[in-house]
């Protein structure tokens, strides 16, 4: 792949005091595409996302290569990272209730993301934030700018979060379960807005999710993680042809509307999955 946004080779992450690594020997490259990372809780998918952002100060991170464009993420100083984080790579978190500052206006928080990285007058940052709110399809953006997080709904909060993260025109966005805290009626709307902006701006997206079928539709490629390792890499469209028994088990265990009411197939875990090479 020419000019990848991310090039990761044999990344392992071990939390301080943990008996084993939470992420083991993960390798992938990411271009200007949408990559899904799927797995159960505890499979290391969020740890991987945080390691890419260098948000795990106490964890031991090792890799052969961990390159984000021209930045060597393994050896970059925290000072360098401050210029990268929120500017060139940013992260959308799961629940806007817990990830927005409750005592500051939503709009000011968005504008802050801009002013941290660009010198400009406050009025200019405000205008940027209002424009971005409109880009995530919030009506009456200048009114919403002055609202506090408790005054907006979950779907709107997550759109505010997206606005904040895309305002600085990053090259890489990591979305960690961006819609799992939202009601199903607004989930698709938020996903479509994120998807539209990511495509329009040519951003590399890493979408972390436990929901295989969601990732199928909003990603180009999918990494399946189990016990800290990537067990299978698939084109999202070919998810139904997954060969790994873990991937197939996850797909089968999901109840479906009008899927009959028989006993759901239960995943039978094989210890060999933890060691065998990725497919």
């Amino acid at each position: 792949m020419s000019d990848p946004v991310l090039d990761i080779r044999n990344l392992s992450v071990r939390y301080a005091g943990a008996p084993g690594p939470a992420v083991r020997d993960v390798s992938f490259t990411l271009g200007r595409e949408r990559l899904g990372i799927v797995g159960e809780s505890g499979s290391g998918k969020s740890t991987l996302g945080r390691a890419l952002m260098r948000l795990l100060p106490s964890a031991e991170i090792t890799a052969e290569r961990m390159q984000f464009e021209d930045v060597d993420l393994l050896n970059a100083t925290e000072r360098q990272m401050l210029k990268v984080r929120g500017r060139r790579m940013s992260m959308i978190l799961q629940d806007p209730k817990f990830s927005l500052n409750p005592i500051r206006k939503c709009g000011d928080q968005i504008a802050e993301a801009y002013r941290t990285h660009f010198r400009c007058r406050p009025a200019e940052a405000r205008q940027k934030a209002v424009d971005m709110l409109e880009a995530v399809q919030i009506r009456e953006a200048s009114r919403v700018y002055d609202l506090y997080p408790h005054e907006v709904s979950g779907g709107m909060g997550q759109r505010i979060m997206i606005a904040m993260m895309l305002l600085t025109d990053p090259d890489l966005v990591i979305a960690d379960e961006p819609t799992s805290a939202l009601d199903v009626t607004v989930r698709l709307e938020v996903l479509r807005i994120l998807d539209g902006l990511v495509r329009e701006k040519g951003i590399g997206l890493v979408m972390i999710s436990h929901d295989l079928s969601l990732v199928r539709n909003f990603c180009d490629r999918v990494l399946i993680m189990y016990a800290g390792r990537v067990v299978e890499t698939l084109n999202a469209r070919e998810l139904d042809q997954a060969r790994h028994p873990y991937t197939r088990g996850l797909l089968a265990a999901q109840p479906r509307i009008a899927g009959g009411r028989g006993i759901l197939p239960v995943l039978k875990r094989d210890p060999a999955w933890e060691e065998e090479p990725a497919r």
Binding site: E40, S41, H210, L212, G249, L250, A253, P255, V266, L267
Partner: peptide, 8 residues
């Protein structure tokens, strides 16, 4: 819970 555990 995860889907696999949800099924159980």
């Amino acid at each position: 819970l995860d889907v696999s555990v949800q099924a159980e």
